[in-house]
Structure formats: C-alpha cells, structure tokens
C-alpha cells in the first residue's frame, strides 16, 4: 500500500471535455482513487458545469503532459505505476460508454471535494492504459484545477 497525490489542470487552450486522467501503466498494482478536489481559478462567472468521472480503456491522449504522482510518505521508496495526464491537444480516446463513476452539477464559482471511506474509492484496474478520466459533460474553454489522491495496492 502506497499513497500518492497528483494534480490535473485544464487550461483555456484546451477547448474540450477532459480535465485529466489517472490510468495504470503496468499490470502489477491496482489503484484506488479516494480523494478528488476540484475548482476553477478563472475569473468568477456564473456558468454551470456538469462534472463527470468516466472510465477509460486503451487510453490515448495526444500530446498530453504526464504528471508524476508524488508519494504522500516520502519514505515508502516505491515509484507509482499509476500515471496522471492532462493538457492534451485533443479529446482523449476510449472513454468507456456509459461507465460514469461520478456525476455532479455545480456552478463555476464553487469548488468541491469528494472523499471516500477506506475501501470505497474508485478502482483503477491493474491494466495498462485503463483507468478513469475527470471531465466535463460538454466542451468548454474554462480553466479547471483538480487534485487527486490515490492508494496503490
């Protein structure tokens, strides 16, 4: 068990749905995403968004930036096999149809945090290029920032 944290961000240059993804890069360990916090640092505006967490399989995202997750305990000496990505130049491929793990609508001025009790997080399978994507229901140029914490086991 090793806990990691990462950040995902969507800039105004990315005028599409995805904010970021958390996927597995190997077949050795699963991950459980247990904490997500999301908000927008754009100039305040009254705009409503529907946020979604959706599964991805055989995921590819053109020119995405890989975010190396940081261990919450620097002494664990274990590198993450889970990969976080954001800021691609097009919509990522291979969202799993109808596999929504979390949906909620919220004004852009609000921020939200979801925390799972131990054992009740969203599971990233130990399968290369499979995992979850944090996204919006519709394309937008709005700026978002997301933090995520997960546990590999």
């Amino acid at each position: 068990m090793a806990k990691f944290a990462t950040k995902l961000s969507k800039t105004s240059a990315n005028s599409f749905q995805a904010i970021g993804t958390i996927t597995c890069s190997a077949t050795t360990r699963r991950a459980e995403v247990y904490d997500l916090f999301l908000g927008s640092y754009q100039s305040p505006a009254d705009a409503a968004f529907t946020y979604q967490v959706q599964r991805v399989t055989t995921f590819t995202w053109a020119s995405a930036t890989a975010r190396v997750p940081n261990a919450l305990d620097p002494g664990n000496g274990q590198a993450a096999v889970t990969v976080a990505s954001d800021r691609g130049t097009a919509e990522p491929t291979a969202y799993t149809a109808d596999a929504f793990l979390l949906n909620w609508a919220m004004n852009q001025r609000c921020s939200a945090r979801w925390q799972a009790a131990p054992g009740f997080g969203m599971i990233v399978p130990a399968t290369n290029l499979a995992g979850i994507a944090l996204k919006l229901e519709a394309n937008t140029a709005a700026i978002f920032e997301c933090g995520a914490q997960f546990d590999e086991f």
């Binding site: 967490v53 596999a99 929504f100 793990l101 909620w104 004004n107 979801w114 009790a117 997080g121 969203m122």
Partner: peptide
C-alpha cells in the same frame, strides 16, 4: 461510504453522503 463537500463562494458549505456501488464502482 464517502462524503461530497461543495463550497460556495459566499462561504456556505453543503455536505452530502455518497455510496459506492458494489457492482459497478460508481459513486
């Protein structure tokens, strides 16, 4: 099985409980 906290800009906090589906893992 989880907690969703939404913070409004005027300082109001709204908390909701969440459940995680045992069959599809959806929250």
């Amino acid at each position: 099985q989880g907690n969703m906290l939404v913070m409004d800009p005027n300082g109001t906090k709204t908390e909701h409980d969440t459940i995680t589906c045992g069959h599809c893992n959806g929250v």
